[in-house]
């Protein structure tokens, strides 16, 4: 593009020079050569208009050809002037002017092509970006097998990719404020990591109410029902046992087992419900790549924002986290599986 500017400057040169009389002895030959060059320039210009990729290059070639034609024509004119041949000089001047015009046109085409090319590049880049986001959205599963090969984030080490930003805070207060600002920024796949449950963080993170109580309740009711059905089936239907003259289905003697099974299944429901809601056990997680993260179970507080978040952007997210004044901020990378 710098060349372009220079070309434009040089393009002004002929206009500054006033046309003079032409006296060349070999006027015909000169004129023919100049015309040929101009024609070549025209051709190149026309060709350049066909494909946007080649357009710029062709146009530049055309401009150069036109320049050369102009120079030839000027030389011819000077020669003609020295020879005193006025008519030839005038013709050569005309040719030079034509060549100049052709060159200017070619240059214009080149600039157009340049603009088009830039636009196309932009479009291609944005398409690639949106494809990348889509492909990431497609595999939202946390199973850890997220391998896709968009090589545009590679930084020397081909097998790593960014996984998350990890910001470290000294106190629960800092953490809560940072969490609130990330919540307000509309992130979704992010988390706070604390050594103990920090109260008020639910609201600071904008978390909905946990559903584990519902799971436990359902399991407890299943336990209660299974106790009743089990006892009725086993002791009253399949093999009735009459003890102490009590009728089949006598309720009071069922109470202890009903209670115990309710409690037992509530306990199992709560345990496995907890595992399910937390997606635990999950022994491998990109966050463990960070060595600083080891203090999250001791006395440090962390916020992580994962690349899977639709709003994640290497620069913007970093800026957002920096605004929350973490005591340390790092981009955690993980190996591509």
């Amino acid at each position: 593009m710098a060349n372009d500017d220079e070309d434009t400057k040089t393009g002004k040169r002929p206009s500054s020079k006033p046309p003079e009389a032409d006296k060349s002895p070999s006027e015909k030959a000169v004129k023919a050569a100049a015309e040929e060059a101009a024609a070549k320039g025209e051709l190149a210009k026309a060709k350049a208009e066909s494909e946007p990729e080649d357009k710029k290059v062709e146009a530049e070639v055309a401009a150069k050809a036109a320049e050369r034609a102009k120079a030839d024509a000027e030389d011819a004119k000077e020669a003609a002037e020295e020879a005193g041949d006025e008519s030839t000089a005038a013709a050569a001047e005309m040719t030079a002017k034509d060549a100049e015009k052709t060159r200017a046109e070619a240059l214009e085409t080149a600039a157009e092509a340049e603009a088009e090319l830039e636009e196309a590049e932009k479009k291609a880049a944005s398409e690639a970006e949106s494809k990348k986001v889509e492909s990431k959205k497609a595999e939202k599963s946390d199973d850890g097998d997220d391998h896709h090969d968009d090589g545009d984030d590679e930084e020397g080490e081909p097998e790593m990719r960014p996984a998350l930003y990890l910001a470290e805070y000294e106190s629960p207060d800092d953490l809560a404020h940072a969490a609130a600002s990330i919540r307000d920024a509309g992130y979704e796949k992010w988390d706070c990591h604390t050594p103990y449950p920090v109260h008020g963080l639910d609201k600071a993170m904008g978390l909905p109410e946990t559903k584990i109580g519902f799971i436990s309740f359902v399991c407890g009711m299943v336990g209660l029902a299974s106790a009743v059905l089990m006892i009725q089936f086993m002791n009253n239907w399949d093999y009735p046992i009459i003890i102490g003259g009590k009728p089949p289905g006598s309720f009071p003697s069922m109470v202890p087992i009903m209670f115990e099974l309710t409690v037992l299944l509530t306990g199992f429901g709560t345990l496995f419900g907890l595992f399910h809601l937390c997606r635990l056990p999950r022994h491998h997680h990109p966050i463990f790549e960070s060595d600083r993260f080891e203090s999250s179970t001791d006395d440090r507080f962390f916020i992580s924002i994962e690349v899977e978040d639709p709003k994640f952007d290497l620069k913007k997210t970093r800026a957002l986290l920096e605004n929350t004044h973490p005591s340390h901020l790092e981009l955690v990378e993980e190996e591509i599986a």
Binding site: G144, F288, D291, E294
Partner: peptide
Amino acid sequence: MQIFPRELNL
């Protein structure tokens, strides 16, 4: 420090 392979998540 990552102490377990990714496959262990299964």
